[in-house]
């Protein structure tokens, strides 16, 4: 089942084409790595898919809804997390979860048991009344991800979720991603860590607004005759004409 479908999706800002006719499909439960250099157009593309920005041309469907006409419906069935957008620092762990549960309209009686389960899985039970700002960064990011998938979205969009996180927490974070994907949640993720690209089922690499390569990490490495995803990325991204935007 296809949950994300982009067909010649394009975004222009004046004369500048930030996203240039990108087409791809993502299947249910897939972990899809969305890579590209700074300024290649990743964030713009992701915003269009989340319904935050209107495409200039092309078609896109997310969870079966048209991104141009049904963006409000899309917002209900997706989760979103970025490195910057985290949680409310001056609320406790529990209060944050409750708040997001409320925003996504989760029935009152389901919130409490679900919250306990979440905290237990993360090993946070003892910290449930701690203010979020007192948590270490890695914990915040794990919590933030768990909150983003609290309402069991069809897709979760992750924008550089692991920047600056320490190595072991980074790995725990990816285990959470694997777990979500096993539960059928599609994961759409951007990252600057090339080892994390290897964890994805499929990876696309954007260069100057276009998708220049898209396949499984294994196939990409074969295609570009490189031992690592870093090598693949370097080969592609060095071709970029667009330096700054």
């Amino acid at each position: 089942m296809t949950v994300i479908q982009a067909d010649k999706l394009t975004k222009r800002f004046g004369k500048f084409t930030a996203v240039d006719h990108i087409s791809f499909e993502v299947k249910k439960g897939e972990i899809f790595g969305f890579l590209g250099a700074n300024g290649a157009g990743k964030t713009t593309a992701m915003r269009m898919l989340c319904g935050l920005s209107k495409a200039s041309s092309g078609l896109g469907r997310v969870a079966g809804f048209d991104i141009q006409k049904e963006s409000e419906k899309i917002k209900k069935v997706i989760g979103y997390m970025s490195q910057k957008f985290s949680l409310y620092e001056d609320l406790t762990v529990r209060e944050n979860i409750r708040l997001y549960a409320g925003i996504y309209g989760i029935p009152e009686k389901e919130i409490s048991p679900k919250t306990d389960l979440l905290l237990e899985n993360l090993g946070f039970s003892s910290e449930k009344n701690t203010l979020v700002k007192a948590l270490p960064l890695g914990w915040k990011q794990k919590l933030s991800f768990s909150v983003a998938i609290f309402h069991d979205p069809v897709i979760v969009f992750l924008d550089e979720p692991t920047g600056g996180v320490d190595p072991s927490t980074r790995r725990q974070f990816w285990e959470l991603i694997y777990d979500a994907s096993q539960r059928g949640i599609t994961v759409f993720v951007t990252t600057h860590y090339m080892d994390e690209a290897e964890y994805c089922d499929r990876v696309s690499i954007m260069v100057d607004g276009r998708i220049d390569a898209m396949d499984s990490p294994t196939n990409l490495k074969k295609q570009f005759q490189s031992p690592s995803m870093d090598g693949v990325f370097q080969q592609l991204a060095r071709k970029a004409k667009r330096q700054a935007d």
Partner: peptide, 10 residues
């Protein structure tokens, strides 16, 4: 190099 893509980092 925080938040900078791998090519620019290199």
């Amino acid at each position: 190099t925080t938040g900078v893509d791998p090519v620019s980092r290199r």
